Simulated assay, not measured.
Amino acid sequence: MKTPSRMLARLALAVSALLTPVVSSAADSGKPLTIAVVGKATTHSYWKSVEAGARKAGEELNVKIEWQGPLDDSKVADQIAIFNNLATSGIDGMVFAPCDDKALAPHVRTAARRGLPISIIDSPLAARQGRDYINYVSTDNKAAGNTAADTLIKLVGPQPAYGGQVLMIRFTEGSASTRQREDGFTERLARDGAFRIVAQQFTDGSMAGAQRVAETLLGNYVKNNKLELDGIFAPNQPSAEGTYNAVNALRKKGVEVKARFVGFDDSALLLQGLDNGVVDALVVQAPFQMGYLGVKSVVAHIKREPVEALVDTGVSVKTKDNK
C-alpha cells in the first residue's frame, strides 16, 4: 500500500517571490558552492539517509556538502550552536531540519536577514516561508498520521478485543513533525469511533528513553498475563525502536500480546520487528529525497531558478509481506 508522492502546492514560483535573490560570491566566481546540511540527529539511519541524499545532489551539482547535526533529536541547544556557527562561517546556503519549531525560529530569521538562503526539511518551523526560508521539503506529516491510523484500524478489524484501547508513545514536545503525525493519528481514530487512545506520553528523544516510557505504560495494561490493548503507535524511528524493544520484552516474558503495532520509518531493528511479528506495519518516509531536494532547492535559489514552495516527499506502508 503506497501513498504516492505529491506536491502540496505546485507553485513553481520565481525565486524573487520567495526571498530576495541571493547570488553568492562563489557562484559569481565560478567556484563550487558550499551548502551546509543540518539534521536533527546524526546517529539514526534515517538521518544517514538524509545525508546520503544531500551528498548525491552535491555530486550532481558540483557542490561541497557540509553535514552536521546534534547527537540526537533532543539536543536542541547543541543544534542552535551548530546552526549559528555554520550560518556565520561563510557557507553559501543551508538545508535545515529544526529539532524544535519555535526555539530555532529566531536563529533562522536572523540568518535569513543576513542573506543566507535556507531550505527547511523534515520538520516545520514557526517562521514565514518566502521571508525566513525559501521552501519546505517534507512528508505531509498530518496525512501520514492519518495513514498510520487507517493502517491500524484495518489491522485490528471491526471487533477490537479490548474496546479499541490504543497506546501512543509520543516523541519530544518540541518536534513539530511528530506532533503533526500524532495529531493526524488521533483525529483519524476519533472519526472511526471504535478506538480511543487510553495512554500517551512524550519521551526524551532517544530510543532508550522511549523504551522506558513504553515499558511503564505497557505494564499498566498487563492483566492476568495478557496485554489488554488493541493497538500501539509510535511516530518516528527512535520512539518506534524503543517501543519495539519494550513489546518484544513482554513477549519474551510470556505475556500474551495481540495488540497491533504500527511504527514509523524502517531501520534494521524495525524491519527485524516486521520479520518476527512484533511490528505489524511501518509508515516509511523518503529521507533521501528530503536531503536531495533540499540541496537542489538551495542551489536553484542561488542561481535565480524557480523553486517549489512546498514539496511533499510522500510515504509508503511496509508490512512483512511487502518489505
Results as ranks from 00 to 15, higher is better:
D72C: 00
L19I: 09
F261H: 08
S74M: 03
A194V: 05
I80N: 05
S89R: 02
A210Y: 02
G242W: 02
K102R: 07
E59L: 01
S25L: 05
L227N: 10
M168K: 11
G231H: 02
K320W: 04
Q180E: 15
D312R: 05
D122T: 10
G53W: 02
T110Y: 08
N85Y: 01
P21H: 10
K323C: 12
A17S: 15
E173D: 10
F264A: 11
T110R: 06
K253V: 09
A52H: 13
A144F: 00
Q289F: 07
Q165E: 13
D321F: 08
G69K: 02
A127E: 01
D72P: 04
F83W: 06
K226A: 11
G163Q: 08
L18M: 13
E241Q: 14
G193E: 04
S175A: 14
D183I: 01
L71C: 05
L33D: 02
V166W: 03
G277R: 02
Y162T: 07
G219W: 03
M94W: 03
G90K: 07
N141S: 12
A52E: 13
S16Q: 13
S138T: 14
A234K: 00
V307R: 01
Q285A: 06
N135D: 14
I118S: 12
D78Q: 13
H301P: 03
R179G: 09
G294F: 03
L218A: 04
F195R: 07
L155K: 01
K56S: 10
K258Q: 14
W67N: 04
